[in-house]
Amino acid sequence: MKKAIGLAMLFFAVGVLPHADAEPAKSGVEKLYILNCGEGVAGDISRWSPGVNEGKSMDFVDNCYLIKHTQGWLLWDTGIPDAVAAMPDGLAPADPKAVTWRRPKTLAVQLDQVGVKPSDIKAIAVSHTHPDHIGNVELFPAAMLYVQKAEYEWPGANNAPRFEPEHPVTKLEGDRDVFGDGSVTILSTPGHTPGHQSLLVKLPKTGAVVLTGDAVHFKDNWDNRRAPSMNASKEQTLASMQKIADTLTKEKAQLWINHDKAQRDGLKLSPDFYD
């Protein structure tokens, strides 16, 4: 009898005494919102698919992804600058083959529609540092920025830094389990830029998805493993595509291609969400 009482007291002390109504603590991703972070028209998509599609135009989209985790909000990519929403003719590129971008909805307005203030977002991560992905980073001056060290230190135009020096940053050197529970993993996928990264997100009902960033720009390039001519490294690009393909197989994941309008048009956009 004394032994039984002693064991019960031990269980109570270490917090493992079972309870009929106890539920396991929940962790992981609760929701994923796809935000419209830009729409545009590419003048000549052969710059993304060398030797193919010469002179062919294509509609592009630019997505951001807002992820609600039990530990807080994470924003993946920040899109075209919100200021472009006030430009009637959009933002024209220096290279006519590239994309003329428009901003139908600002990022700030879309966050407000789902009841999120910029100050609520404690972490942001960007696939890479091209302007259509980092246009609104400074809407979140206190949010921890997750970026590959190789990308952060890659010199910008006139050797300018790619981010405000005072912005809090975690410089990665490879993959990173963001929340420590396997639900959101940054994948190092260099090639498009020196420190490009993609994101694996595991949702409780939808399952796993891989957000490509610009590891691939549209499905035809993915199917044919094409590396854009402007990429930093063709070899790294192809290796990163294979890494993504292996991840899709291992995790039974969907591939969500950031700029592919045909695919994006078949997905639910914010304020709807995936869970």
Rank of each mutant, 00 (worst) to 15 (best):
D132C: 11
S46V: 06
S229C: 02
S119P: 00
L10H: 12
Y33E: 06
K3N: 06
S57G: 11
D272V: 06
L66K: 04
Q148D: 14
D260H: 09
A25V: 15
P141V: 06
V114N: 00
P81E: 12
E164F: 08
A108G: 07
V184T: 08
V184I: 15
V137K: 03
F218L: 13
D132V: 10
V184E: 02
W76Q: 07
Q242E: 15
Q242C: 04
A160K: 15
S49F: 07
P104K: 09
F163C: 05
D120S: 12
K122N: 04
G135D: 12
G90I: 04
I257H: 01
P141I: 02
K268A: 15
L172F: 09
A215W: 00
P118L: 11
K268P: 06
Q148W: 02
S233D: 15
R176D: 08
L255Y: 05
Q254T: 05
P50E: 11
I124K: 01
I244N: 02
V109L: 11
A42N: 05
K26G: 09
W73G: 02
N53Q: 12
P50T: 02
D275W: 02
G28V: 00
H196G: 08
D82N: 10
Q254I: 07
P194K: 14
N36H: 13
F60D: 09
D175W: 04
A94S: 08
M87H: 03
N36T: 10
G90W: 02
K205R: 10
N136H: 10
D275K: 11
D44N: 11
D272I: 09
G6V: 01
D21G: 03
K122I: 09
G115C: 09
D77P: 00
A108P: 00
W154C: 07
V169Y: 03
D62V: 02
T129W: 05
A42I: 06
A245P: 00
D177M: 05
D181L: 05
E30P: 01
K252A: 15
F163G: 04
G156C: 13
L139F: 09
R176N: 07
A215P: 00
D181S: 08
H69Y: 06
E235A: 14
L145G: 02
V14A: 03
V126M: 01
K56I: 08
E23Y: 05
M9A: 14
P93L: 09
